[in-house]
Design a protein around this nucleic acid. Sequence first.
RNA 1: UGGGGUGUGGCGAAGUGGCCUAACGCACCGGAUUUUGAUUCCGGCAUUCGAAGGUUCGAAUCCUUCCACCCCAGCCA
Length: 559
Amino acid sequence: MSKNHFLRSIAENDIKNGKHEYVYTRFPPEPNGYLHLGHAKSICLNFGTAKELGGKCNLRFDDTNPEKEDIEYAESIRGSVEWLGFEWDKLCYASDYYDQLHDFAVELIEKGVAYVDDLNAEQMREYRGNFEEPGKNSPNRDRSIEDNLDLFARMRAGEFEEGQYTLRAKIDMASPNMTLRDPILYRIRYAHHYRAGDKWCIYPMYDFTHCISDALEGITHSFCTLEFQDNRALYDWVLEHITIDENLIGEKGKAMPRQIEFGRSNLEYTVASKRKLIQLVKEGHVSGWDDPRLTTLVGLKRRGYTPKSIRDFCEEIGVTKKDSTVEMTVLENAIRHDLEASAKRVFGVLKPLKVVITNYPEGESETFTVKNHPKDENMGTREIPFGREVYIDQDDFMLDPPSKFFRLGPGREVRLRYGYAITCNEVVQDDNGNVTELHCTYDPLTAKGKTPDGRKIKGIIHWVSAEHALDAEVRVYDRLYTEPNPAASDNFIDLLNPDSLHTYPDAKLEPSLADGTQEDRYQFERVGYFCFDEKDNNSQKLVMNRTVSLRDTWAKVSK
RNA sequence: UGGGGUGUGGCGAAGUGGCCUAACGCACCGGAUUUUGAUUCCGGCAUUCGAAGGUUCGAAUCCUUCCACCCCAGCCA
């Protein structure tokens, strides 16, 4: 069922060859922002691969930078992983390993492969060299083990200022791999940590923390993105130089966790970088992290995307060793595919145009029993009221329509879906020439799709009874940007699509929507898929979001 | 410039020496069905695999050279 990508093959082979008895992965976000589609790929990869191969997966917060992290982000991330439908084996925090991490650092010092350095940031950059030239050893590189131990203890005790000292691994200042030029393991930070509080004033770096966290949790396969390829050498170096309780490590203490990298996927017409997302929110270009136009997971959820559609999307884009840019239509196809099968059909008119059926008796009405889904009988039926006055959409009427326009126009006939055929006899216009009302007559013999005389009625439009209609605000979204790759531009704010949000304040909906719930997904027939807005919809005011439009061949033809 | 990666149709992506005159999905283009211009269905869409050489009876798959793009010089992750 699932695609057999290379990461899965590697894990599978490791089981077959007996390297591991099981697969254990982890999804390791830093709680410094909200999850987006890119994370969804990683989530599906880590949780999905483990699940498919009968293994386990942890949710681990990689929280080693107190200045950027917050409980708010951790909570949101947790919620998004659950929303996507995955269950972690353990909920872990790198910050829970601070004590052990500290002890491993001491071990490295004792082994003579780590030292305390007093070079400042600028000096360190100079000593590091560059791509052409090797780095130079720090003057502190040969400090005695005793002194290093003492200095590190005092770093921890808070005797120094931020930046005054660092703990570095003693590897190779001439390595062509820059990450191996004596990387920093610990830095001094007098910052309050959202979980560890003020217990620590030294914090471990990513490269030191991640591999050890993996080992402590018994992770077998550590999937990460391409930019960490160079870091893999350091990942392995750290694990080779520490002594870790055997039974804590993967398979019988023998197999170390292995880091394997995969390519990122970007979506066209969106941005995903944390910095850009923050700017959009702070400057008010969007309403918040959960703005339905954003591809954050909370945004997609509010927009009406289902967890299944996101999972299917991730499956569809695949996993390889190259970064890719995916077209928006792939995402849209995923949600349309899901909703086509599961959404209840209803009638909703976004831009109402009143139609008076002049030969329908005043004060009378009737109800039609209609299917909730054209193919799925299990979804049942509902009643929709019909009366002398109905609303149709302004887009379904043209004063001077082309011949291929299968809808209403002066003197033309269309079928009101599930109801009668009507003919437009009179167009009421205001002083500016705007069409404000249509007077039509109906053919009583055309009920329930019949045309007794055999005439063909090509046009079928949706409608809502004026007397019974529900008032609603409907929000329709379009792509956030006018360019496929806004991130490539340094003025990505200028590339915002001014028409990314259309609000229809006077929409008219069929009365059955009054009983809708937040979980419900609807197809407004001939229009698109909609859901209730989780924030602004309430019993006083109906507010709905368009998740995605229906495919619209006519829109293409009419161009 | 040193190191690490990647190059298959418009976008993704299978494929690791012969059943490849290259799967599948999206997009696109026909056509059929349809009380949603939706859905569904049927058909079309790379003689070519970054380029050039070479090995071989045979190459997208092996070798050589070249080219393009991405990542690394944070006390971020």
